[in-house]
Design a protein around this nucleic acid. Structure first.
Length: 567
RNA sequence: GCGUUAGUAGCUCAGUUGGAUAGAGCAACGCCCUUCUAAGGCGUGGGUCUGGGGUUCGAAUCCCUACUGACGCACCA
């Protein structure tokens, strides 16, 4: 596809003093109002070097800018040079590109030959999968797909929380109050009951905590009984999680969790001691980070057992050696920001320059109206309940609106689960939010079902088109209506949006883009007939509809939503 | 206490990295299906961009300050 921004930048560079093509490219904007054109070049910064008022500069540039074939007109308005593209040229470039690339439209090769690791979801064994976990899971899955789409060789890692003192606690509780049959029959609820009971008892008698720490130490020392129980807990929990991952269409390349690094930590600890960055304090080993404005990081406890941060340092080093990543992305809540800053600084102090390629993609909290979610107090909403409720509601809507639909179950599942996932990825990831059933089950307005519905609508029109429409020569000059041009402008932007979403680790950019595209398309759809007697016009509009259909589908895929053809 | 982060319409949020008249959805009210999917479209009302200073041609956006919320700060992960 012709790079319009590049083309305009190259034309402008001859008319501006002291700016490079790259600088112009970066400063090109899309005007606030569509009737102002496709691109705008602000002249305010030139005022100093050119010693003239911005409107005068803009006027001179606009007048002098020879009209290239891809430009329809240029005009100076209030210090901007507004450029309107040739409509037929734009349509031809964009729609031909989509027709040729199909499900690859929007993809790129900027990541070709590079490896990107995305660590996400990272659920804790023995605890239920609740609404708080959907964030890392879906942001991570979207970033995984986006990076693949950008050409990266991508590795998705579920860094399971399958190690640490909590397992000592679980072992103590299991030995005192649990039994194998109950745990196997009903793993998560049973393990959760044990975990909660442990905390109740430990509140009254702190010696329970000592016992738990002792059991974790035994686990680290490969005690057979501890290891056997740990294996049991891990296996039954993973089986439960896979059911939810299946519903969400989420997949991992590796389940190497915290335990995976247990035998790799001693070497790293030795390395840290040898490099002289650790010191003993109150019987524990710490790294003093005061010089960097951070509190000290605790690396080993006074009983010698390890901590979360020890495993993250070890994991980063292992991943560099094993995968030789170009990017190592961690999708973990912002509550752990300090933790990431600390271990990354430590890895830097160990002399590893590649730590600059490690990125903590943080995100805000999910709370309930009653307060923050807490597994121990039972104040949680199960993710599976939300997904099932959404699917059930969708089923009812289908019965109401489209009872003769085939594959009702598949559609109900795609739309219901899609609604939940879409909502999760609609806001900037840093924002906290409060879960509400009402909002999660909204299917109108800026929602997943709205975008999916628009996609299905495109499919429906195409189904009714003459069979041979796809092999017709298209007269792109017929797409001149304002509504058509606005759709084309958005379609052109899609590859830029994908690239931006990857660079900023922000899937919501794609979510918002496809809402925007769906809204713009629906306006066109409402005001103009597609299947009309004028064949040339009809074929041109079908090409446009097909462009929207494909782009919506590709965008939905990137945020982990399915695109049913009927609903 | 220190640090990080957020504060934009009644509610939920965008706002292209300092630019043109601050935009959507929901909720409310009123319209539009004998025509390609009404899970749709159109219209109306709704704003001291948390308060106060500052920087400059120009601030929701940058700086300072106060307030409010969330999160974090040594043996949990």
């Amino acid at each position: 596809m012709f790079d319009f921004k590049q083309g305009i930048s190259e034309l402008l560079v001859a008319k501006t003093e002291g700016l490079t093509v790259e600088e112009i490219y970066a400063s090109l904007e899309i005007p606030k109002h569509s009737d102002m054109g496709d691109f705008a070049f602000p002249c305010f910064r030139l005022a100093k070097t050119m010693r003239k008022a911005p409107p005068i500069i803009a006027g001179e540039i606009a007048a002098a800018l020879e009209t290239a074939t891809f430009i329809e007109k240029t005009e100076a308005v209030a210090g901007y040079v507004n450029v309107t593209l040739n409509k037929g040229f734009l349509a031809k470039e964009v729609l031909s590109e989509i027709k040729a690339k199909k499900e690859q439209y929007g993809s790129s090769t900027i990541g070709a030959g590079k490896k990107a690791i995305v660590e996400f979801s990272s659920t804790n064994i023995a605890k239920p999968f609740h609404m708080g976990h959907i964030r890392s899971t879906m942001i991570g899955n979207a970033l995984y797909r986006i990076h693949q789409f950008l050409g990266y060789d991508t590795v998705g890692i579920n860094h399971l929380g399958d190690y640490g003192t909590q397992f000592g606690k679980l072992i103590v509780a299991y030995k005192k109050w649990g039994n194998k049959e109950q745990v196997e029959a009903n793993p998560i609820p049973e393990l959760l009951t044990l975990y909660v009971k442990f905390h109740e008892e430990a509140e009254k008698d702190p010696s329970y905590d000592d016992e738990a720490r002792a059991w974790f130490k035994k686990l680290e020392e490969n005690d057979p009984e501890a290891h056997e129980l740990w294996t049991l807990f891990r296996e039954v929990s993973l089986k439960e999680f896979d059911r939810v991952y299946g519903m969400l269409d989420v997949h991992f390349d590796s389940y190497a969790g915290e335990s995976f690094y247990s035998d790799k930590m001693p070497a790293v600890l030795t390395e840290m001691r040898d490099k002289g960055i650790m010191k003993v304090s109150e019987g524990a080993e710490i790294v003093d980070l005061e010089a960097y404005g951070m509190p000290p990081a605790l690396i080993t406890k006074k009983d010698g057992s390890t901590l979360y941060i020890t495993r993250d340092i070890t994991a980063a080093i292992y991943r560099k050696n094993h995968y030789n990543f170009d990017k190592n992305v961690y999708v973990v809540g912002s509550a752990q920001k300090l933790h990431f800053q600390q271990w990354m600084k430590i890895v830097e102090l160990m002399g590893y320059e590649w730590v600059k390629d490690c990125v903590h993609v943080d995100f805000g909290m999910v709370a309930l109206e009653e307060g923050s979610m807490s597994t121990r107090s039972g104040r949680i909403v199960f993710l599976e309940d939300v997904l099932k409720t959404a699917v059930e509601k969708t089923r009812q809507i289908i019965e109401d609106k489209n009872p003769n639909l085939e594959n009702k179950e598949d559609v109900a599942s795609a739309v219901g689960i899609g609604a939940i996932v879409f909502q999760e990825l609609s806001n900037n990831r840093i924002k906290d939010y409060t879960f509400s059933w009402e909002k999660s089950l909204a299917f109108e307005g800026e929602t997943g079902p709205y975008v999916q519905y628009t996609h299905a609508r495109c499919c429906s029109v195409i189904r009714k088109a003459p069979k041979d429409w796809e092999v017709q020569d298209i007269n792109f000059d017929r797409l001149v209506e304002k509504a058509e041009v606005e759709v084309l402008r958005l379609l052109r932007k899609f590859p830029e949006v994908v690239e931006d979403a990857g660079a900023k680790y922000e899937p919501s950019l794609i979510t918002r883009y496809i809402v925007d595209l769906a809204q713009t398309f629906n306006r066109f759809y409402h005001d103009h007939s597609i299947l009309v007697d004028d064949e040339a016009l009809s074929f041109a509009r079908l090409a446009l509809v097909n462009g929207v259909r494909q782009t919506l589908k590709n965008g939905l895929y990137l945020i982990s939503l399915k695109a049913p053809e009927k609903m």
